[in-house]
């Protein structure tokens, strides 16, 4: 069946939506349709993709205004006469067509102090119980598609990239802070440099996460609580002063 697409074409200097019509068959996802248009009508149409199974997080775009993975968005989610509009992620600078420059995210990751593991047990092993790693494993499902970064209004509308690392890296920080082996302290920079206070928990990031990570509830809010405990709870402050215990 013929379907109408409006794909954004252009580069950092500007661009516009162009219309394409292509045949769509059963089971196709939006990325399939884009590839078909690319092969048959627009050989130089730029789109980033890799695994085509929702595991690598490369094909993040905005489909009819919603941040989504093109490879996991089925054509039958839309009405048969509905036009499919695809544009690049708005939070990041466009390179060309549907491809954006996401290098800012890689810079944020590099700033975060890596895992500092405690010593191994006497027999050379690390012991961690499954129930203690469950919550960290949830965060480690992240495929770095940056759809959460794209939808976060602090980054998207306010462009406050110098004040907030965004939901992706709050999750990365949570996965380190809650890692049973970790002995590092990142609470001061979570408050200051990474801007945990910037998030006002509208949960837009959680809604778009293709891995269904409870970004706000399980990641950001507990980090905010740790910051509050550290800086604003006098009893705990005194306790830490006496014991030297970071938590």
């Amino acid at each position: 069946m013929k379907r109408l697409f409006k794909l954004w074409r252009g580069d950092s200097t500007g661009g516009d939506f162009k219309e394409y019509e292509t045949d769509v068959t059963e089971g196709m996802v939006v990325l399939d349709a884009i590839h078909k248009i690319q092969a048959e009508q627009a050989n130089d149409l730029a789109v980033r993709w890799n695994c085509k199974a929702g595991k690598c997080g490369s094909c993040s775009v905005e489909i009819n205004g919603v941040p989504k993975l093109a490879c996991m968005t089925r054509m039958n989610e839309f009405q048969e006469d509905q036009t499919i509009t695809v544009n690049p992620m708005k939070t990041f600078p466009v390179i060309r067509d549907l491809v954006t420059d996401v290098s800012w995210n890689y810079e944020q990751n590099k700033k975060i102090k890596p895992l500092k593991p405690r010593p191994r047990d006497a027999d050379g092993e690390y012991r961690m119980m499954q129930e203690d790693v469950d919550r960290v494993q949830e965060f480690r499902k992240c495929i770095e598609c940056y759809l959460c970064q794209d939808t976060c209004h602090v980054l998207r509308d306010q462009q406050q990239k110098d004040k907030f690392v965004g939901p992706r890296f709050m999750i990365r920080l949570a996965s380190l802070e809650m890692h049973p082996l970790d002995t590092e302290d990142r609470i001061p920079e979570i408050r200051d440099e990474y801007g945990s206070g910037m998030c006002n928990i509208t949960k837009c990031c959680t809604v778009v996460c293709p891995e269904h990570i409870q970004i706000t509830d399980n990641g950001i809010i507990p980090l905010k609580e740790r910051v509050v405990d550290r800086y604003y709870d006098p009893v705990l402050w005194l306790w830490r002063k006496i014991t030297g215990n970071k938590n």
Binding site: E125, Y126, H179
Partner: peptide, 14 residues
């Protein structure tokens, strides 16, 4: 594991 990988655990925590 030392670099941060979090594998599924056995009952003994290995």
């Amino acid at each position: 594991e030392e670099w941060g990988a979090v594998f599924d655990r056995t009952k003994d925590g290995l």
